[in-house]
């Protein structure tokens, strides 16, 4: 789609623009001789980095600052999340609170086309996925009539399913930073099927050549899967194996998340 929608609330560029045809691609294949282009093994995850709380010390309490925030990196994926709440919400359910999630890609975050500012259907779909993945983990009965809002912005994306998993991990960290009561941290991980082999945590290039991708989000302590999404065709036993392996990967992500969150608690409060 090369036509740019005229948005009267933004500065607009030319009415039509396209990516040029890049002639330098195509030589590097993501999978060669059973190995991955970036040197990882088939079940190796990309390195994770998390920073919760404000990037620098807040000298005074600010009523408009988020209750909790997290910045998450996994390989080249960069995601920022802010959580507000519990605060007064539009829906006032006397028995339990509500959890809402807002997801957006920054216009420069995807390696293919520049994303338009107006939210697309995929961003709205992912927001629903994140809500459904995170809601079971939150003790919403502890926050009647309140709402908890999470706002996620993807600064850089590298693999659609990997980005969704990373977003879930980021929200988990932000919720923990906000002090929201959780049954457990939700950890997520993605996999793709390439030449009948399941490969963990695929980047964009690897996902593009795979027949099937899936991600699992899991509460490891409770041993419950909160969300499972598959895109592509497989035999039932292949999916079974994938879910098993992915759950183990989730446990490893969980360990990393816990370590970072513990370290941030141990830092002297300023």
């Amino acid at each position: 789609m090369s036509a740019n929608i005229f948005d009267r609330r933004r500065v607009n560029g030319p009415p039509r623009s396209v990516e040029p045809l890049y002639t330098d691609e195509g030589d590097v294949k993501p999978f060669t001789n059973g190995g991955r282009a970036d040197g990882r093994s088939l079940d190796q995850l990309r390195p994770i980095f998390i920073k919760t709380g404000p990037l620098a010390v807040q000298p005074t309490f600010s009523p408009t600052a988020p209750s909790g925030s997290a910045y998450y990196e996994q390989g080249k994926i960069r995601i920022s999340c802010a959580v507000y709440g519990p605060r007064q919400g539009r829906k006032s359910n006397p028995r339990m609170g509500s959890f809402d999630c807002d997801f957006q890609y920054a216009p420069f975050s995807c390696s293919w086309k520049r994303r338009p500012h107006i939210k697309g259907a995929d961003e709205k779909e992912i927001a629903l996925i994140l809500e459904q993945a995170m809601a079971p983990a939150i003790r919403l009965e502890a926050y009647p009539k309140a709402c908890i809002d999470a706002f996620v912005t993807v600064i850089e994306s590298d693999g659609k399913f990997a980005t969704i998993s990373a977003a879930i991990n980021c929200i988990s960290a932000a919720l923990a930073d906000a002090g929201i009561e959780l049954y457990d941290i939700v950890a997520a991980c993605s996999m793709s099927l390439n030449a009948s082999q399941w490969v963990s945590d695929c980047n964009q290039a690897e996902e593009d050549v795979s027949q099937c991708s899936l991600f699992v989000s899991r509460m490891p302590s409770a041993d419950e899967i909160t969300y499972l999404l598959q895109q592509g065709k497989t035999m039932p036993d292949q999916t079974d194996r994938a879910v098993q392996t992915c759950s183990n990967s989730c446990a490893r992500v969980y360990a990393v998340l816990s370590r970072y969150l513990q370290a941030s608690m141990e830092q002297p409060a300023s």
Partner: peptide
């Protein structure tokens, strides 16, 4: 990205700037 130039300025490209202030910040 690549596009056609404006008829009045056939030799000039575009620089379009937008600031995003979302509830996240």
């Amino acid at each position: 990205e690549v596009s056609e130039p404006d008829v009045k300025t056939p030799n000039e490209g575009y620089l379009v700037t937008n600031v995003e202030l979302s509830p996240m910040c």
